Amino acid sequence: MNADGPDPEALGHPYVVAHRGASAQRPEHTVAAYDLALREGADGVECDVRLTRDGHLVCVHDRKIDRTSNGTGAVSELTLAQLREFDYGSWHSSWRSDGSHGDTGLLTLDALIAMVLDWNRPVKMFIETKHPVRYGALVESKVLALLHRYGIAAPPSAGLARAVVMSFSAAAVWRVRRAAPMLPTVLLGETSRLLGGSAATTVGATAVGPSIATLREYPELVDRAAAHGRALYCWTVDHYEDVRYCRDVGVAWVATNHPGRTKDWLQNGLTGAGRDGTEP
């Protein structure tokens, strides 16, 4: 068993994590995106979290809401009530004015956790804390407090954990490991020097998370992580050749904007897909 669950090779494929939900088919970080990902069989879901001006954790990737909503401004400068005045789906090609594709309002981390825990099968949540931010370590404190409230901050083992906390900030990962030592963590990074060196050991990360580009350049990251008892989480894996590559080198978790398609490729032996990453 690896740091985040059963050996993926024993199952014949990596686990599939829905990156910001099924974000190719639905607006990222919305109930609509996560509902589709869960229905498509995602093994995990990923989200980015930020703090509002009045201290609420919301699922928004960018510092500002301009790209993914019909509003404008920095998340940290707006209250939860102000952020809820906007729609977070009309920018996406899937958006329907009649709401037929689901809820595209602001999503809080609280609501996402409740949604995932209420699903009819175990699904792991990968929660990324964004840095640098004006509230600093308060982000991790708030995340851990929320996980404690749901009773999932101190799992009996990493493999049975329902939540994983991730960050590109080594200090953030260290804060989580120090406060919740049984909670799995992922140190994200762009360079093999960071992920293959002593940083992950120093902060106590149970997994490392390179991009697919970094992993292709340094495939030895998988074995190096395994030698230290760590799993490998790779982002963002959308194309057929990259999915096959991750399977072949032994990646434990692949984050993708196309969870349904990726699950289908893996479960059907990666056959019938075009080299450009499209469905047959």
Rank of each mutant, 00 (worst) to 15 (best):
M1W: 10
M1T: 13
A3Q: 06
G5T: 04
P6C: 12
P8N: 03
P8W: 06
A10Q: 14
P14A: 05
Y15Q: 10
A24M: 10
A24L: 15
A24F: 15
T30I: 08
V31T: 14
A32F: 05
A32W: 01
L36R: 12
R39Y: 02
R39S: 13
D43P: 04
V45T: 06
E46A: 05
E46N: 03
R50P: 02
D54C: 05
C59Q: 00
D62R: 11
D62C: 11
I65D: 05
I65Y: 10
R67V: 12
R67E: 09
S69P: 03
S69W: 02
G73D: 01
S76A: 15
L83F: 08
E85V: 03
W91N: 07
S93G: 10
S94N: 05
W95R: 00
G102M: 07
G102V: 07
D103V: 02
L109Q: 05
L112P: 01
I113G: 06
L117P: 01
M125W: 04
I127V: 14
R134L: 13
V139S: 07
L144Y: 06
L147S: 11
L147D: 10
I152E: 06
P155I: 08
P155Q: 05
S157M: 07
G159I: 05
R162E: 06
V165F: 03
M166G: 06
A172Q: 00
R175P: 02
R175G: 12
R175S: 13
V176K: 01
R177M: 04
R178P: 00
P181Q: 12
M182E: 08
V186I: 06
T201F: 03
T202S: 00
T202P: 00
V203P: 02
T206L: 07
A207L: 01
A207C: 04
S211A: 01
A213S: 13
A213D: 14
D223Q: 15
D223N: 14
H228T: 13
V237L: 02
V243W: 14
R244T: 11
D248P: 04
D248M: 10
G250F: 07
R261G: 01
T262S: 08
D264W: 14
G269D: 01
G277M: 08
G277P: 10
E279I: 11
